Amino acid sequence: MSEAAKPSAVIMGVGDGLSAALARRLAPDYALHLCARSPGRMNAVAEETGAATHLLDGTDPGATRVLFEALDPAPRVAIYNPSARVKGPITDLDPEEVRKAVEVTAFGAFLMAQAAARRMLAAEPDERGVRGTILFTGASAGVKGFPRSSVFAMGKFAQRGLAESLSRELHPQGVHVAWINIDGAIRNPGREEPEDNPDSMLDPGAIAEAYATLILQDRSAWSHELTLRPWVEDF
């Protein structure tokens, strides 16, 4: 399929781990648009996959809106990866750092979803009757809050709630929305599993396959939430 004939897909927050694996998985079938605040790792992924790149801050409403309005054709897939952590006891947290972190994890997710939904709802459905897919990369912090991690929990709980609400709103209109709970550490470049605990980390390529499965799900059986964890984990 030529690039001109491919549907478009947007990946927000691109580095050399999960987002790179997602780009590799989607590149054969989509005209990719990669977004990040800095070019370094994103440019390497773009060179490998042939994707277009966009320097932007995902918490900037205007930049996100302009990006999605300019896409031609309208995006069929939009994936939000960014998140921010501020760790520490509640009594010591800097309110400004907290605000910025929650904006990255939650407000940015809202901005992407809004911009993507506007384009998808105005588009003609594909042969499956689907107008688009919006996916959010979550974490176990969106299901249970850990000590000294209140800020990350706030952001991920908000993100999960956003996805659940939007799935009820947008599924009947042909837009698939899902939140993926990455319940464990990802085996990103430079991060190795403990020798005494093999298979304890999630493979980014395997996670990307799960995202692709969500994108291709038949609309008669859509998931709005998916949890992924290593098979050796006791939970």
Rank of each mutant, 00 (worst) to 15 (best):
G50N: 13
A51T: 07
A51S: 07
A51H: 10
A52T: 08
T53S: 14
T53K: 08
T53I: 09
T53A: 12
H54D: 02
L55V: 11
L56P: 14
D57Q: 06
D57K: 10
T59M: 05
D60H: 06
D60Q: 03
D60M: 04
P61S: 08
A63S: 07
T64R: 03
T64Q: 14
V66R: 15
V66W: 00
L67C: 08
L67G: 12
L67H: 02
F68G: 05
F68S: 05
E69S: 10
E69F: 01
E69H: 10
A70V: 01
A70C: 03
L71M: 01
D72V: 06
D72T: 13
D72F: 02
D72C: 03
D72Q: 15
P73W: 03
A74W: 07
A74P: 09
P75E: 00
R76P: 02
V77C: 09
V77T: 04
A78S: 14
A78E: 06
I79D: 00
I79L: 09
Y80T: 00
Y80L: 02
P82M: 04
S83L: 01
A84D: 12
A84E: 13
A84F: 06
A84Q: 14
R85F: 12
V86W: 01
V86T: 05
V86I: 07
V86E: 11
K87S: 05
P89S: 13
I90N: 15
T91W: 14
T91Q: 15
D92E: 11
L93E: 00
L93Y: 02
L93I: 00
L93Q: 10
D94S: 10
D94T: 02
D94G: 04
P95R: 10
P95H: 09
P95Q: 11
E96W: 01
E96Y: 03
E96C: 00
E97Q: 15
E97C: 03
R99I: 04
R99Y: 01
K100L: 11
V102S: 03
E103S: 08
V104A: 11
V104C: 12
V104D: 14
